[in-house]
């Protein structure tokens, strides 16, 4: 670990597997668009699934773009949280655990949208039949604990948003939940978020693009880190060892 690098990151990216995302969210286009926008670190976070991450990681090989495997989980409280991991194995282990707690309901593409599993070129592999945008039977705390156990990083997503955001749904960050950061949505500024929810000032705030289409790859977070790992992101969130982060929207 020598040089610290400042890179733009987008830690909340959906693929065409999320029913609400555009079909253009295929691995090669995500990789190309991120790089064109000067974003060199992304996390793939589909709703309650990890099946398209491998394709994106492969598509990014040799491109200079680092891809963290992740998931946007929907817990029993109807709250969305980002679960980030270092390796695909960790993410898959989490997926297996979560999948057992998803209510078995088939997707109706006409209402919810298609759920496509694709390969690294974006080629169709299969349709995911299980409806992904449902609440798992697990609560926030036990899901947090599972992510910790697997070595992952748990970040409540778009906490300010009325739909599925932690603060409107649960009123406040649960005092017993030792979250390391919160994500605010792209539709609000840090100042406004703090005005609306003063008690979140004690948490590091990230801003997520929640990218459901290519031009929503926001890359609003700049991290100064030595390498794209969760250990480094944690140091940056805590502001330790010269690591740091800031929200810096692209102009």
């Amino acid at each position: 670990m020598g040089f610290l690098t400042t890179i733009r990151a987008e830690l909340h990216v959906h693929t065409c597997l999320s029913p609400c995302a555009e079909v253009e969210m295929i691995p090669p286009l995500i990789v190309r668009e991120a790089i064109e926008r000067g974003i060199y670190l992304i996390a793939i976070t589909d709703h309650n699934t990890t099946a398209n991450i491998e394709g994106v990681m492969k598509a990014a090989q040799g491109s200079g773009l680092a891809v963290l495997p992740g998931m946007e989980v929907q817990t029993r409280e109807e709250v969305h949280s980002l679960c980030l991991f270092d390796t695909l194995e960790q993410a898959r282990a989490f997926d297996n655990w979560l999948r057992a707690g998803l209510p078995p309901m088939k997707n109706n593409p006409d209402y919810f949208g298609e759920q496509f599993v694709v390969d690294s070129t974006g080629d169709f592999l299969r349709r995911e039949e299980q409806l992904l945008i449902l609440s798992a039977e697990y609560g926030l705390e036990e899901t947090f604990a599972k992510v910790q156990e697997l070595g992952g990083l748990f970040i409540p997503a778009h906490v300010n948003r009325t739909a599925f955001g932690l603060l409107p749904v649960l009123g406040m960050v649960p005092p017993e939940l030792p979250v390391e950061a919160l994500e605010i949505s792209r539709h609000i500024t840090v100042e406004k978020a703090l005005q609306q929810f003063p008690h979140i000032a004690r948490y590091p705030l990230l801003q997520g693009g929640d990218a459901h289409r290519l031009d929503e790859l926001l890359g609003a977070n700049k991290f100064t880190i030595a390498e794209p790992t969760l250990a480094e992101l944690r140091l940056a969130l805590a502001g330790i060892d010269g690591r740091s982060f800031r929200i810096s929207p692209r102009s």
Binding site: R76, G139, E141, V169, L170, P175
Partner: peptide
Amino acid sequence: LQAHANIVAV
């Protein structure tokens, strides 16, 4: 229907 611990605080 919400059974999360935060309901106690509220």
